[in-house]
């Protein structure tokens, strides 16, 4: 579904990603793990078209998307829940969620999806007319996931959903993600909470200072002594 080949990305002169290769198959859940500053968010921004790569290729279902405008990449079916939520703080929860469906013309399906995300996060239903900026951290994250789902992407990229949230809230949000996965959505999970990510994923990649240093089935990585030591603190 997604095939990244020899991808190099830089901010101006400062290169952040080096020869990244990665593959995601349909209906797969893939985790991308790595320390703070490794380049995970940079990779997601590049996939979504917010950053242009220096070189390399990103293919999505056979189409070259590296360097395409963000709206065309979304239209092809790659959606993202960015790190830090990036809600539209002055808009209501409902307006935020509906912005996710900005490009969609299938009104009936949009309505169904709206009901689905409210089912997933009943708390959002109670807050529909509140400004998103007034929500608690956990509620903001739910709103961001709901907005991401409203694009009905084929591949959903989620970035650090657990960041700064209490364990119970994190569990609540990942339960929702699990339901989405069960419906067959392909998901790339980026997490600093490595245990959480590996628990969800079929396969995983480890990014270290801009390079993929390890990859494999999630359960194998979970048992890998280097992973255990470096990321799981066991």
């Amino acid at each position: 579904m997604l095939k990244i080949t020899d991808l190099n990305v830089a901010y101006g002169e400062v290169q952040v990603l080096w020869d990244v290769n990665m593959e995601i198959h349909e209906s797969e859940v893939v985790a991308l793990i790595g320390a703070n500053g490794a380049g995970k968010s940079t990779l997601l921004y590049t996939i979504s078209g917010l950053l242009k790569p220096k070189s390399g290729s990103i293919q999505f279902n056979g189409t070259e998307i590296a360097g395409l405008p963000a709206d065309e990449i979304l239209r092809l079916g790659i959606g993202q829940v960015p790190q830090g939520r990036h809600l539209f703080a002055g808009m209501t929860v409902k307006e935020n969620i509906m912005m996710g469906a900005y490009l969609r013309k299938d009104k009936q399906k949009v309505k169904e999806d709206f009901d689905f995300v409210l089912d997933l996060f009943p708390r959002m239903g109670e807050r529909l007319n509140q400004p998103a900026g007034s929500l608690s951290g956990g509620e903001q994250q739910m709103c961001a996931v709901a907005r991401g789902l409203m694009a009905a992407p084929k591949l959903l990229l989620v970035d650090e959903l657990s960041l700064g949230l209490a364990p119970l809230v994190v569990e609540n949000i990942y339960n929702a993600v699990e339901k989405v996965i069960q419906r067959g959505m392909t998901v790339l999970i980026v997490e600093q909470d490595v245990f959480l990510a590996l628990e969800q994923a079929d396969r995983a990649y480890v990014l270290d200072v801009g390079r993929i240093v390890m990859s494999g089935p999630a359960d194998e990585l979970m048992e890998n002594p280097r992973i255990k030591e470096a990321y799981l603190g066991i």
């Binding site: 979504s48 917010l50 709206d71 912005m99 900005y102 694009a151």
Partner: peptide, 23 residues
């Protein structure tokens, strides 16, 4: 309107607006 919301969204968070497909 959808377009009006896209304008407001762009003013509030330009990266997030791009991620929703706003040109």
């Amino acid at each position: 309107t959808k377009t009006g919301n896209a304008i407001r969204a762009t003013g509030m968070d330009i990266d997030a607006a791009r991620l929703q497909g706003v040109r």
